[in-house]
């Protein structure tokens, strides 16, 4: 195996472990931290089913963002939906044979990459053009956008400009998940793409990308509005009651 293959194989195992382990740790941390008070932003659903629907609208349609700002919503939603299509399309590199749904999504996923980059550029433009957003932007906000645009552009270059050796690539990716390691194709665009994706996986659990698990744990969105009917109490708070009785 070439040094290049060793590097990328190792990189992807480390990135995958970091991503999965890091996210699992964060989710564990969020779930074990108590929410001592009932604080849904009202009007809020009064049933668990209602809360599931609220959360679904939030995650799928970005309901609150839509209420807030149509430009951020357009670019943000376009980016996320296109990213989802692109990610689903990439399942084909880890499946043999490729199932029908993934095959069906292939053309949509290819063109979604364009929407993804447009969405990102729109969000990035706001960081320069809107004084309020410029004020709150940190270097890492710009770097995160640069990273995602970089992933999008290197990926698109292989789809629309110069195809990479797709058979060899699939050999490499399948090799990763079957532990039967194969050489990584030596193609600059591909290697850049793979490197940036691994970087994204590595920073995911320690960056603002934690908004992905975070939204599901947000008490203002995931709590049921029923405080008069249900006594909502955290273990550390219940201990105070025992002193009283």
């Amino acid at each position: 195996m070439s040094a290049l293959t060793v590097f990328f194989t190792g990189l992807y195992y480390i990135a995958a472990i970091t991503l999965i382990g890091g996210l699992a740790y964060r989710i564990y941390e969020y779930s074990r931290t108590p929410a001592p008070l009932n604080i849904p932003t009202t009007p809020a659903p009064t049933t668990r089913v209602g809360v599931s629907l609220r959360m679904a609208r939030e995650v799928v349609l970005f309901e609150s963002l839509f209420k807030s700002n149509k430009w951020i919503w357009v670019f943000g939603w376009l980016f996320h939906v296109c990213l989802a299509l692109v990610l689903i399309r990439h399942v084909r590199y880890f499946q043999d044979p490729v199932c029908e749904i993934i095959a069906f999504i292939q053309p949509f996923g290819m063109y979604a990459s364009i929407g993804m980059v447009i969405g990102l550029l729109g969000l990035w433009a706001r960081r320069f053009l809107v004084d309020r957003v410029r004020y709150i932007s940190t270097p890492s906000d710009h770097l995160m956008l640069a990273l995602l645009v970089g992933i999008g552009l290197t990926g698109m270059s292989m789809t629309f400009v110069a195809h990479t050796d797709i058979v060899a690539l699939k050999g490499f990716t399948m090799g990763l998940i079957t532990f039967d390691w194969q050489p990584v194709p030596n193609d600059f665009n591909l290697l850049a793409h793979l490197f940036l994706v691994a970087l994204l996986m590595l920073v995911f659990p320690i960056s603002k990308l934690l908004h992905v698990p975070g939204v599901f744990f947000s008490p203002t969105r995931n709590q049921v509005d029923n405080p008069r009917e249900r006594r909502h109490i955290a273990p550390w708070a219940a201990a105070l009651d025992k002193e009283q009785v």
Partner: peptide, 24 residues
């Protein structure tokens, strides 16, 4: 407080600086 309040814990991590709140 980070250990006692999930709200604080999650809110410290989740912000992406999108700017939706800036004029609210």
């Amino acid at each position: 407080l980070l250990g006692k309040y999930r709200s604080l814990r999650v809110f410290m991590d989740a912000c992406v600086h999108c700017g939706a709140c800036t004029d609210k």
